[in-house]
Structures are given as C-alpha cells and as structure tokens.
Simulated assay, not measured.
Amino acid sequence: MSEKATPEELPAEIREAVPDWDDEYLDRVSDRLMYNYDLEKDRRVGGERWDLYGEMRVLSQKQFFHPALSYADHEAEEYLFARRESRPTVAELEQLVDLGHELADERVVPDEEHFGTDFTFVLVADELPDDVREFVAGFRDRTLLKFGYHGHYEVNLLVVVPEAETYVASEAADVVEAFTLWEDVSAPEEGILSRFAKRFWR
C-alpha cells in the first residue's frame, strides 16, 4: 500500500467493517490501522476496557512448485490495545505487562507453525512523566516457547501524547507510525506482506 493510499481506495466491505470513533484522534489512527488490522471499539479484555482493539494475522509459507504443496508454514499475530489515560504511571504499565503474559497463556498456541505473537498496549496520554518515558524506552519483553522451537511472544508498550506531538515506544513497538499522526508514514520499498514477514522474522 503506498503512502498516498486513502481509506476510499479500500474495498467497500473493508471500509464498512471499520467502526467510527467519536474520539477524532483515534478515528484518524484507525484510518492508518485499517489496512492491516481488524478493528473494534470499546472492547473489554482481561477486565479492562479498550477504546480501540485490533487483531492482525500473517501466514508465511513456502511452496514447492504448486500452492497445494506448501511447507514451512508459520503464523504470526498481533493483538493491539489502545485507550485514553490522562497521566500514565509505571505501575499501570507493569500491570499491562502482566496482562500481556496472561493473554499469552490464553491465546498463544505453541506449536511448530507458531512463529510469533505480539501484545501491544498503547496509552494515549495528556502528559508523559519522566519515569514513564524511562521505563518504556528501556523495555523489551520477549518470551521464547520451548527454546524457540514453538516461536515466541512479545509484549510491547507505547505512550503517546498527541497534543505535545511526543511519544515513547518500547524497542519492538512497530505500530508507533500509526499513532504519530504528525509524522508521515514511511514509504514502503516492497510489498506489505514481505514487510510484515521481515518484521516477524527478525
């Protein structure tokens, strides 16, 4: 999808399946996410309410002469959770990390076809306290399953302050481009599937 792509260029059935948010910021974010995620609004997960929820699944497979003769299938998924939180705290972020591990226990099926699952939590804030910035900037939480033979899962964090046009993201929180509306989305040099494949295979 080119950087000039607009929601109007998507098939009507995809556009119609995307909710409208009363929150103008999240509604604009959803315009960037709709190309890759199935989106919902006001979703409750793990006892928490999320203004925006998204799921993305990618299947990577190799073929031997014919699609019916495929091998080395790998599945990668991302679950995205975003909500307004005026002044986030480190304690709250630590609770979200714990929630990520709980969801991994519920949702990740560790087998030879599972490559990776990401749980990404986004807090849309009014301010970015220094301790929160420091915690998120240094955060990385990746868990190997059966020494990596059954893939891995990762918990990612992002705190964004739209009014101040600032944010902090953990190392693997690639979704940051969708939430930094004041910056242009990077122009891809290759197809979207190969970009996501590279993202999950690194």
Rank of each mutant, 00 (worst) to 15 (best):
T120E: 06
G54C: 07
Y25P: 00
H66C: 04
P129V: 11
L93P: 01
W21T: 07
A72D: 14
L59A: 11
R133Q: 09
A173E: 13
E163Q: 14
R84A: 07
Y25D: 00
A197V: 02
M56S: 12
E134Y: 09
E55S: 07
Y167W: 10
R15V: 00
W201H: 13
A172E: 02
F64G: 05
A12C: 01
D118G: 06
V168N: 11
L103T: 03
E112N: 09
H74G: 06
W21E: 06
H150D: 11
F81T: 03
D174I: 00
E183A: 10
K41R: 15
A173S: 14
R57Y: 10
A169Y: 02
S170V: 04
S30G: 14
T180C: 06
F81Y: 13
F119Y: 15
H150V: 04
R202Y: 12
F81M: 04
H101L: 05
A12W: 03
R43L: 14
S186A: 09
E134D: 15
E189H: 08
E16N: 14
I14Y: 06
A197W: 02
F64R: 11
S70C: 07
K4G: 06
V97N: 07
L96S: 08
A178Q: 01
E112K: 13
Y149M: 13
V90K: 03
M1Y: 13
H101A: 04
M34W: 02
F119A: 02
L52P: 04
A76S: 15
R44E: 15
Y25S: 02
E106T: 09
I14R: 12
L99T: 02
K62Y: 06
M56R: 13
A104V: 07
D73P: 14
E113W: 07
A172W: 09
R84L: 06
A76K: 07
P110N: 06
L69A: 12
F147W: 10
P162H: 09
V122Y: 03
D98R: 12
V45C: 06
L99R: 04
E106L: 14
L99I: 03
E177H: 12
P129R: 05
T6F: 05
Y149D: 15
A104M: 08
P7I: 07
W50D: 00
E106N: 12
D126S: 15
E112C: 07
A17Y: 08
W21N: 13
A164Q: 15
L39G: 00
E177C: 00
Y53W: 14
D27C: 05
H66P: 03
A104C: 12
V108Y: 04
E13G: 04
A187C: 02
A68H: 09
A178E: 05
L158D: 02
A82C: 02
